[in-house]
Design a protein around this nucleic acid. Structure first.
Length: 917
RNA sequence: GGGUCCGUAGCUCAGUUGGUUAGAGCGCCACGUUGACAUCGUGGAGGUCGGCAGUUCGAAUCUGCCCGGACCCA
């Protein structure tokens, strides 16, 4: 084995082996266990969120597979309508071609080409993470099978009246020229203005002043509204004003919606360009006049002067014209929420169009109940509140998109504009008896989330009743970030309950977002993005700077980002390997909070991998040539029994952690066991046995225990760090005659209560305390490790005597002790002292220790003990504590007090003695 | 405006039904290269658990208010 662990030498080969051996396919035996991957964008690339998300899923999947479950991790990718279309359009733009130049079919071909070219990127990166997905079952949301499911769902919902077509206001993205759903709108407060405009009464008797943040919409105004009880305007209701610049005569109406306190109490009403105004327009039967084109330029319904102007250009022109006409009262700075598209970043417009909607009220009801009655459980639980709040206030879901890339809506129109919905044009013709009437299919495609809402069952073969569907659905747990609870999780629950009559998953594990070290969201524009692959393979500074500053939307940020990057990573990023990265994510995956990712932590777990690697080298070196398969004639020592006992404890702890989806606790337990118990203590304790005068039976037992515990620890750690554990296991397991091609197929370690050994636990606890007592003196007195000590034991009971005899070799070896003996009533030489229970551990000072320093050291300890004693005494003298606290707690306090007092006495006596020198 | 979460050592975070000497990693200080590992070992320093009240024999943990920060919805 190499002296240091080098992940780059093993990872790729091992993954290829696993895949070739079919390790990730369901075994066909045991209870089913299934996780559905949240399908990443097919043309996307892996970011830290994916890496976190997949680490959690893979750990769970590998754990359950090793536990003997029939485990399926279903993999696949999403066609990501808008995102993918935008990307391909931008690429074409670079060649000077627009999608309209190509036409629909040719453009879609281009997208498929791009998918073929780049679609392997994300799946390759999933492999780099070690994700044990079943690649033989890989699906894509636009596959024929999945498209069939989409169509089926659409048609059935339409038949039941739960999908309908309607003309109403939608959020319109004028850059992408498509409708988007409410969820795709991001409202952010921005600096703007509010304009007060004068609207003259038609009869010339006066004017009203209205306030608006979007003056250009006045071109579509259909009324001015006031509050019905607003006395200032009561007399005007029913009169009309003449709309400036336009000349249209529009009524003054009264409506409760108007807030008389806000502005002047008069509101201009533009039903076709504002959601509130739209509702009011319907109440008052106002005309809906659309004054915008689909790119948000002014259309032909406005006065000619403004036609063709962009909306913001028109805004300026209109304000100028109001001012020129003396109709502008004032302009004020104003903070206002601005709706932007989450993909394009463009300011959205409420826009009157025909769209397809899902009526969600009826679907939401059972979806709420499923969570209320516990069929679906969110972890952590508080997300259920978020879910309920959203589900109880759902608006119908706009599912049509004016894009080309996606599932085309299965609806056809005849020349009279009648709509027919069906699985195909032929079916539509036949069912509606249309003969050879000319039909054209709806041009729109479905929202991407429509197909991903079906993911848990469409990937398993629905609408066919496949064996996989019967076996693996409902799935066990959905692992996801909270950012897509509404987009995806809620919709999956609704659709699955509707079409399967069962929940899509029993649990939803909601994890946090991966942020940068300072807690800021990672984004290209901030230049703080880390690429998980760079953490695995490493990256030099120049390449990293290039990556972060190249191809920026705002090139002016590049300098700043470059500077920050050079400062943060002066030497680039080390190659930490996949296992270290995964261990970091696992260790930080505590109860759903965001994680601030810091590299020091990854480096720490890289070191942990190296520790495990080197411990293995030590073990293998010590068992070279030995037969480890015979288990008779072995004489396990106390410490052999102890480490086996500890192994049971950690196995139980890890099991508990996995059951509660607490990967951080599992990781922590594994880390502590391997490093702090197995390496720091056990390996050190085997040295005097293997290199000393122990019998062959004792040595053989120790060799076997070294290997057996290592082998079990590898299996224990495998779900979190699959590569290094596999690599080592393939060497270790055969030596123990434990077969199998892969650790991923080996059984998960299971605690056996019979192997818990209280006697060994107590003995080693004593040994450790005694060793530490000597080491503390050595450390604090700056005695170099090379200086072997004489140690005297004093006081103590029969058990201390027995343990001192049993543990002598270990004690001497670990504490660097040359001579160990009992004082047996003799006058103690001047010594530095430690106390273990009733026993004094004395290191004679002659030439080694400065009395002053020792007095200071002991005095500090005395002060601490006195504080402890005082606190405990006051507790115990409190009658209420003694009478009300459980006896167990009281006894514990009493024991603590006695112990502290005894120790204090010894230390004080020692201080007195040293002072008399 | 409604809601959620967070505030524990210099930094990043654990702390499961209230009872621990409040922990870990990194960083810091000292000593150290005895053949697993300097990607290391040993020892040490460092916290009135954001603040104030309250419940309780007992509060980092439960309740209320306040301060500070993040996010979601409107």
């Amino acid at each position: 084995m190499e002296k240091a662990f080098d992940p780059s030498l093993i990872e790729k080969d091992l993954y290829a082996q696993w895949e070739a051996q079919g390790c990730f396919k369901p075994s066909g035996t045991g209870d089913p266990y299934c996780i559905m991957i949240p399908p990443p964008n097919v043309t996307g690339s892996l970011h830290m969120g994916h890496a976190f998300n997949n680490t959690i899923m893979d750990a769970l999947v590998r754990y359950h597979r090793m536990k003997g479950h029939d485990t399926l991790w279903q993999v696949g990718t999403d066609h990501a309508g808008i995102a993918t279309q935008m990307l391909v359009e931008r690429k074409l733009e670079g060649q000077g071609v627009s999608r309209h130049d190509l036409g629909r079919d040719a453009f879609i071909d281009k997208v498929w080409d791009w998918k073929a070219e780049s679609g392997g990127n994300i799946t390759g990166q999933l492999r780099r993470l070690g994700s044990s997905v079943d690649w033989s079952r890989e699906r894509f949301t636009m596959d024929e099978d999945l498209s069939r499911a989409v169509q089926e769902v659409f048609v059935q919902l339409h038949q039941e009246g739960l999908i309908y077509r309607g003309k109403r206001l939608v959020n319109w993205d004028p850059v992408l020229k498509t409708a988007v759903s409410d969820l795709e709108v991001e409202n952010e407060e921005e600096n703007g203005h509010i304009w007060h405009l004068r609207y003259p009464l038609s009869d010339g008797s006066g004017e009203l002043v209205v306030a608006t943040t979007r003056p250009e919409t006045m071109l579509g105004d259909q009324a001015v509204a006031v509050h019905p009880e607003d006395e200032r305007y009561a007399a005007l209701v029913g009169k009309t004003i003449t709309l400036p610049l336009v000349g249209r005569e529009i009524p003054i109406i009264a409506d409760d919606y108007v807030d008389p306190e806000f502005g002047t109490g008069c509101v201009k009403i533009t039903p076709a360009h504002d959601f509130n105004d739209y509702e009011m327009g319907k109440r008052h039967d106002l005309p809906m006049l659309n004054v915008l084109n689909d790119d948000a330029s002014i259309n032909v319904h406005a006065p000619e002067k403004y036609q063709g102007m962009d909306r913001f250009e028109a805004r300026k022109a209109i304000v100028a014209d109001f001012e020129a006409a003396g109709l502008l009262v004032e302009v004020k700075d104003h903070r206002l929420p601005v709706p932007r598209g989450d993909r394009s970043g463009a300011v959205l417009e409420p826009y009157l169009t025909d769209q397809w909607y899902v009526a969600v009220a009826e679907l939401a009801k059972p979806a709420i109940e499923a969570v209320e009655n516990g069929d679906i459980e969110f972890v952590p639980k508080q997300w259920e509140n978020t879910y309920f709040a959203w589900m109880r206030d759902l608006q119908d879901w706009c599912i049509s998109r004016q894009l080309w890339w996606g599932h085309r809506i299965p609806a056809w129109y005849d020349e009279a504009g009648n709509v027919y919905v069906g699985r195909s044009e032929a079916e539509v013709r036949q069912q509606n008896d249309l003969g050879d009437r000319v039909l054209t299919q709806d041009n729109d495609v479905l929202d991407t989330w429509f197909s991903s809402a079906l993911w848990t069952f469409s990937t398993l073969g629905w609408p066919d009743e496949t064996p996989e569907l019967a076996k693996f659905h409902p799935t066990d747990v959905l692992v996801t970030g909270f950012d897509i609870i509404f987009f995806w999780v809620a919709r999956m629950i609704m659709m699955t309950l509707k079409f399967r009559g069962e929940v899509p998953f029993k649990k939803v594990y909601v994890h946090g977002l991966v942020r940068d070290g300072e807690g800021k969201k990672m984004s290209k524009s901030k230049g703080n993005v880390l690429d998980p692959i760079d953490l695995i393979d490493g990256i030099d500074l120049e390449t990293l700077v290039q990556k972060r500053t190249g191809n920026m939307m705002q090139p002016q940020m590049a300098k700043k980002i470059e500077k920050a990057t050079r400062k943060e990573f002066p030497d680039g990023i080390d190659a930490f390997g996949t296992d270290a990265l995964r261990f970091t994510f696992a260790a930080m995956a505590s109860t759903g909070r965001d994680i601030n990712f810091n590299l020091e932590r990854v480096a720490g777990y890289r070191n942990f991998c190296n520790k495990l690697w080197n411990a293995t080298r030590f073990v293998l070196m010590n068992v070279e040539g030995a037969d480890l398969t015979q288990t008779e004639e072995l004489k396990p020592s106390l410490v052999d029994r102890w480490i086996v006992s500890r192994l049971q404890a950690v196995e139980a702890e890890v099991e508990r952690a996995f059951a509660n989806l607490r990967l951080d606790m599992a990781a922590q337990a594994i880390y502590e066991f391997i490093w702090n118990e197995y390496c720091d203590w056990y390996l050190e304790l085997t040295k005097p046995v293997l290199n000393g005068e122990a019998s062959e039976a004792e040595k053989a037992a120790t060799r076997r225990t070294l290997m057996a515990v290592l082998e079990a620890a590898l299996r224990l750690a495998h779900p979190i760090m699959p590569f290094i554990t596999e690599e080592i296991w393939q060497t270790v397991a055969p030596r123990l005659a434990q077969g199998g091609d892969s650790i991923s197929q080996a059984p998960y370690p299971q605690a056996e209560s019979g192997k818990i050994d209280p006697e060994a636990d107590a003995a080693v606890a004593w040994l450790k305390s005694t060793v530490v007592a000597v080491r503390t003196i050595r450390g604090e007195m700056n005695i170099p490790p090379s200086k072997k000590l004489t140690v005297l034991l004093n006081a103590g009971d029969a058990q201390d005597r027995e343990l001192a005899t049993t543990c002598e070799t270990w004690l001497k070896s670990l504490a660097g002790v040359a001579e160990l003996s009992w004082l047996d009533g003799a006058e103690a030489p001047v010594s530095s002292m430690g106390v273990v229970g009733e026993m004094e551990v004395l290191v004679p000072m002659a030439g080694l220790i400065d009395a002053e320093a020792e007095i200071a050291r002991l005095s500090k300890e005395v002060t601490r003990l006195e504080g402890d004693i005082q606190r405990t005494e006051s507790k115990l003298s409190n009658e209420k504590f003694v009478s009300k606290a459980p006896a167990e707690v009281v006894d514990k306090e009493k024991a603590k007090l006695a112990d502290a007092k005894a120790t204090l006495d010894r230390l004080q006596a020692q201080v007195v003695k040293l002072n008399t020198l």
